[in-house]
Amino acid sequence: MIIREFNPSDLKRVFEIEKASFKDPYPLGVLKMMYDIGAGFLVAQKNNNVVGYIIFWIQKNNEGHIISLAVDEKYRRQGIGTRLVNSAIKILKKFNVKEVSLEVRKSNKVAIKFYKALGFKKEGVVHKYYDDGEDALVMKKYL
């Protein structure tokens, strides 16, 4: 398995993974826009097939932010998500980023446990963050 930069030919597959992974997936156009504006965008590839991705960027105050992370259900629990997050953090560190944040559904216990295992800690709550009214936990990792 390799982690590499996203290229536009990956878009359809990334969108398939996005739709299968999230209750309120980003539209195809938003994913393309993330690439177009220069957000960090990595994919995990196994046997010439994209099996996961991460999108991230640097916000004001030099803070990294993970926008989206997903792994095809058939490839979960194989360390792919961990490799994607660690690869993104490695890139962010090159830009002197000192902390990385993300939002996760309060009900997504699996994701919360995953991020905690990577050293992220709960920092707060954003009420009614998601379209269906669910709150998001803000998690942060200091580098």
Rank of each mutant, 00 (worst) to 15 (best):
K122R: 13
G64S: 07
R83N: 10
R13H: 03
R4I: 07
K98Q: 13
F6R: 02
I54K: 01
N49M: 15
G124I: 04
S68C: 08
A111H: 09
V43Y: 02
I58L: 07
V100C: 08
E103K: 07
E18C: 07
L69W: 00
G119V: 03
H65D: 07
K106F: 10
F56H: 01
L42Y: 08
D72R: 06
S9V: 12
A39D: 13
R77P: 09
Y130Q: 01
Y75L: 06
D132E: 04
K93E: 06
I91N: 08
D131I: 12
T82F: 04
D24I: 14
S101I: 09
Q45V: 15
V104H: 03
L31N: 06
I91Q: 08
V104K: 04
F120V: 01
A44I: 10
F41D: 02
K74G: 09
I55Y: 01
S87D: 04
S107K: 10
L42G: 01
I37W: 04
I66C: 02
W57I: 05
L137E: 02
V51Y: 06
L69I: 06
F41M: 00
K98T: 11
K121M: 11
K121P: 06
K106Y: 13
V97C: 02
V51Q: 08
A39M: 14
S107L: 10
K140P: 03
S101W: 06
V138A: 01
K19Q: 12
K140E: 11
K60G: 14
N62T: 11
I3P: 03
V85L: 04
E18D: 06
I67G: 10
M1D: 12
Y115T: 00
E99M: 14
I67W: 03
D135I: 01
K122P: 09
N47H: 15
K98I: 10
V50T: 14
Q59C: 13
E134T: 01
D135K: 00
F41R: 01
R13V: 08
K93L: 10
S21L: 03
I112D: 02
H127W: 03
I89A: 09
G38T: 05
K93A: 08
V110T: 15
K109L: 15
I67E: 11
E123N: 13
G81E: 04
K23G: 05
V51W: 05
Q78K: 14
K113T: 14
K98N: 12
E99F: 02
Q45H: 11
P8A: 03
P25L: 11
S107D: 14
V30C: 09
G52M: 04
Y130E: 00
G81P: 09
N96E: 13
L92H: 00
G64R: 06
I80N: 09
T82Y: 08
Y115W: 00
H65L: 05
Y75R: 08
A70Y: 02
G79T: 00
E16R: 04
Q59D: 14
A88K: 03
F56N: 01
V71K: 03
K140I: 14
N108S: 12
K46R: 15
N108G: 09
S68R: 10
M34N: 08
Y35P: 04
Q59H: 13
Q59P: 06
N96Q: 12
M1N: 13
K60Y: 13
D135S: 02
Y130W: 00
V50K: 07
F15C: 09
K60R: 14
D72A: 11
